[in-house]
Design a protein around this nucleic acid. Structure first.
Length: 201
DNA sequence: CGGGTTTGACCTGCGC
DNA sequence: GCGCAGGTCAAACCCG
């Protein structure tokens, strides 16, 4: 299992993590699922508040299956919230990606987590190509958009630094890699280790 | 020269 | 309907 797959696996399990774990990383992880039919989670999880404690790792919110969920991070409020955007091959942005009328929109698996880091880009072992950058409202830092360079792999990620806390980088992964990790992932292994601690309690 | 980045334009969704 | 915000494209550019 590669690192991301491990994370996906973690996020998919119905464990109930502790509310706090000692760590030198401040890591907040979220996901949402591709099950477009289930909007039931929308009001099932609590909002997230930025912790002042760099060493705290805690649950953001849960859906009815105790899975951490959220799909929007508001830089202005440092809070997670839900939304109905972000579909696989939605009509957003490009006419080439239009979903034909009558076709069901499929929501892609999406995971977001925060890390305390001086660098924006986590070395997760995959190769990414930047395809866009946008200024975000109420945030002095732009959001960067990346796509996996592997042919046929449609995984995307967004990277954004919080305006309110410049040490915090929010990385959002969308989709699942269809190929193994390409290079050594020491940095990401470290993050993964934190998650494994988190899940084993 | 190939691969990655930058950046302005363009598109859609959504709220008012 | 309009304006805004977010997401993507693609040409130009950069760099090893």
């Amino acid at each position: 299992m590669d690192n991301l797959a491990a994370i996906f696996h973690y996020a998919s399990s119905s464990i109930s993590p502790p509310t706090a774990v000692s760590s030198h990383l401040s890591l907040h992880m979220t996901n949402h699922y591709s099950d477009d039919a289930d909007h039931g989670y929308k009001n099932q999880y609590s909002s997230y508040e930025q912790s002042d404690d760099d060493h705290e790792l805690r649950l953001i919110g849960e859906n009815r299956n105790n899975v951490v969920v959220a799909d929007r991070i508001s830089p202005s409020t440092n809070s997670f919230s839900t939304g109905d955007g972000d579909y696989l091959n939605t009509s957003m942005g490009s006419p080439k990606l239009n979903v034909r009328k009558g076709e069901k929109k499929i929501r892609k698996a999406k995971f977001a987590f925060q890390t305390r880091s001086q660098v924006d880009i986590l070395d997760d072992g995959y190769r990414w190509r930047k395809y866009g950058q946008k200024a975000v409202k109420n945030n002095k830092f732009p959001r960067s958009y990346y796509r996996c360079t592997q042919q046929g792999c449609n995984v995307k990620k967004q990277v954004q630094r919080l305006s309110k806390d410049e040490g915090v980088v929010v990385t959002t992964y969308e989709g699942i890699h269809t190929h193994p990790v390409e290079k050594s992932t020491d940095n990401f292994e470290h993050i993964l280790t934190q998650m494994q601690i988190y899940s084993s309690c």
